[in-house]
Amino acid sequence: MVQVQRQAMQDFEDFDWVLGSAEEHLAMARQGSAGQLCALARCYDWYQHPETVLGWVMAQKCVDLGTALAAFLNGEPERFNYMPKRDVPEGYRGIVRLLDNICLRINSGFYLVDPNNMLADHKRINKWLAYQAEDDAEGRSGRWQLDADILEPLLKNTLRIEVPEEQKKNHSLLYDILSPAIDLATKRVIEDEPEPAKGQSLATRSS
């Protein structure tokens, strides 16, 4: 506890995210501004404490769609997209649950588009969507199906420069109402997930 309090006295920008425990990382993340949290979500090392730190960060209303997609890709979902639930190694199940959460929030419209936080890796997302369309045509499905309609404004840059205050309030209210349902849906996906159809992993497909 003393160590966490000492970390809390440090400046967010000077904090060494390579060191420290999950508790210390989370304590520092809770001090971050909206911009700092988005930057953290985009660059946080998934080999550190993603379940604890990103599990909290990605549930914050300040996180935008471009940031959410960047964080999702950082988790290397290609590794597990076609892997049956029972075959996911024990040490990676927390990461897979976190990816489940992020995907559910993306598809629910939880994350809004922010013109100041664009998606850097368009090529990788477009490839994911292309393979997803191929899967649909061939009657198979990966674990994570991204809603192309949700992503379209971001990928095509058809952005609203300013989000009206009323829309921001509605988004906040919608989050407050739907958050328990989203969490319950995630739990059901994890605990009662149908086994994915066999298919070729994105990681093994040719570019």
Rank of each mutant, 00 (worst) to 15 (best):
K127D: 14
K127G: 10
W128D: 09
L129T: 07
L129S: 12
Y131H: 11
Y131I: 13
Y131M: 12
Y131V: 08
A133R: 07
E134R: 04
E134V: 07
D135I: 04
D136N: 03
G139Y: 00
R140I: 06
G142C: 04
R143W: 05
L146K: 01
A148W: 00
D149R: 09
D149W: 06
D149L: 09
L151K: 04
P153M: 03
P153I: 13
P153Q: 13
L155Q: 12
L155H: 09
L155V: 15
K156I: 04
N157C: 15
N157I: 14
T158G: 08
R160K: 13
I161G: 15
I161L: 12
E162A: 09
E165I: 14
E166N: 07
Q167K: 00
K168M: 13
K169M: 10
K169T: 07
N170M: 10
N170Y: 10
H171G: 10
H171Q: 14
S172T: 10
S172R: 12
L173H: 05
L173G: 01
L174C: 06
Y175D: 12
D176T: 05
L178T: 02
S179E: 12
S179A: 09
A181W: 02
A181H: 01
D183F: 05
D183G: 07
L184E: 05
A185T: 10
